[in-house]
Simulated assay, not measured.
Amino acid sequence: MGATGAGKSSFINSLLRCLGQDKRVKVGEELVSCTSQLESIIIEEQTNHWKRIKGHRIVIVDTPGFDDTYVGDFVILQRIARWLEESYRKRMVLGGVIYLHDISQDRFSGTARRNLEMFNHLCGDSALDKVVLVTSKWGRAFGRNLERREGELKNNHWKTMLDGKARVERLVAGEEDASAWRVVRSILDRVETRAIEQSKSEALQIQKELVNRRKFLPQTHAARELRTQLQQMLEAQTQMLALEADAVGGNAEAQAQLQEQEAKVKKMALQIENLKVSMPKRLARWLKLVMGA
Rank of each mutant, 00 (worst) to 15 (best):
residue 265 V to D: 06
residue 283 L to S: 12
residue 26 K to W: 08
residue 70 Y to I: 01
residue 256 A to L: 13
residue 82 R to H: 14
residue 29 E to I: 10
residue 35 T to A: 10
residue 121 H to I: 04
residue 118 M to W: 03
residue 266 K to C: 09
residue 9 S to D: 11
residue 228 T to Q: 13
residue 160 T to N: 12
residue 272 I to A: 08
residue 256 A to D: 10
residue 93 V to I: 15
residue 63 T to I: 04
residue 263 A to L: 11
residue 34 C to K: 04
residue 234 L to A: 15
residue 85 E to Q: 15
residue 52 R to H: 09
residue 252 A to I: 13
residue 28 G to K: 00
residue 107 R to L: 07
residue 29 E to L: 15
residue 111 T to W: 00
residue 235 E to S: 09
residue 57 R to D: 15
residue 143 G to K: 09
residue 281 K to M: 15
residue 117 E to V: 07
residue 25 V to G: 04
residue 238 T to A: 14
residue 227 R to Q: 14
residue 218 P to Y: 08
residue 12 I to R: 06
residue 65 G to W: 04
residue 68 D to I: 06
residue 177 D to C: 06
residue 45 E to S: 11
residue 199 S to N: 06
residue 94 L to Y: 03
residue 161 M to V: 07
residue 217 L to Y: 02
residue 60 I to A: 06
residue 11 F to D: 03
residue 218 P to Q: 07
residue 143 G to N: 08
residue 241 L to N: 12
residue 257 Q to G: 15
residue 134 V to H: 01
residue 36 S to G: 15
residue 123 C to Q: 02
residue 278 S to M: 02
residue 244 E to S: 09
residue 254 A to V: 01
residue 180 A to Q: 03
residue 111 T to M: 07
residue 15 L to R: 00
residue 127 A to K: 01
residue 58 I to C: 14
residue 268 M to E: 05
residue 258 L to K: 02
residue 79 R to M: 08
residue 252 A to H: 06
residue 2 G to D: 13
residue 248 V to A: 11
residue 106 D to N: 13
residue 162 L to Q: 06
residue 81 A to H: 05
residue 222 A to N: 08
residue 209 E to R: 02
residue 73 D to I: 01
residue 104 S to W: 09
residue 277 V to G: 00
residue 12 I to K: 00
residue 139 G to L: 09
residue 173 A to E: 02
residue 3 A to T: 11
residue 151 G to F: 08
residue 21 Q to S: 11
residue 99 Y to W: 01
residue 102 D to G: 13
residue 98 I to C: 08
residue 114 R to K: 14
residue 39 E to G: 03
residue 144 R to I: 06
residue 231 Q to F: 14
residue 82 R to E: 09
residue 47 T to G: 00
residue 15 L to H: 04
residue 133 L to H: 02
residue 161 M to F: 13
residue 132 V to A: 13
residue 124 G to P: 02
residue 157 H to W: 12
residue 195 A to M: 11
residue 111 T to H: 01
residue 14 S to V: 05
residue 249 G to I: 00
residue 207 Q to C: 12
residue 44 E to I: 03
residue 125 D to C: 08
residue 206 I to C: 07
residue 156 N to P: 04
residue 186 S to W: 03
residue 291 M to N: 10
residue 57 R to H: 12
residue 127 A to T: 04
residue 285 R to I: 07
residue 86 E to Y: 11
residue 101 H to W: 05
residue 118 M to K: 00
residue 151 G to W: 08
residue 131 V to D: 01
residue 286 W to F: 13
residue 245 A to I: 08
residue 280 P to E: 04
residue 174 G to R: 08
residue 142 F to A: 07
residue 249 G to K: 12
residue 43 I to V: 15
residue 202 E to T: 05
residue 176 E to R: 09
residue 43 I to M: 00
residue 24 R to M: 08
residue 156 N to M: 10
residue 41 I to C: 02
residue 111 T to A: 14
residue 281 K to G: 13
residue 242 A to V: 09
residue 80 I to Y: 00
residue 59 V to A: 13
residue 45 E to D: 15
residue 289 L to P: 01
residue 244 E to M: 14
residue 131 V to C: 02
residue 224 R to S: 05
residue 188 L to N: 02
residue 287 L to C: 13
residue 86 E to Q: 15
residue 204 L to R: 05
residue 172 V to T: 11
residue 175 E to M: 05
residue 15 L to W: 03
residue 270 L to W: 12
residue 80 I to Q: 00
residue 283 L to A: 11
residue 156 N to D: 10
residue 117 E to L: 14
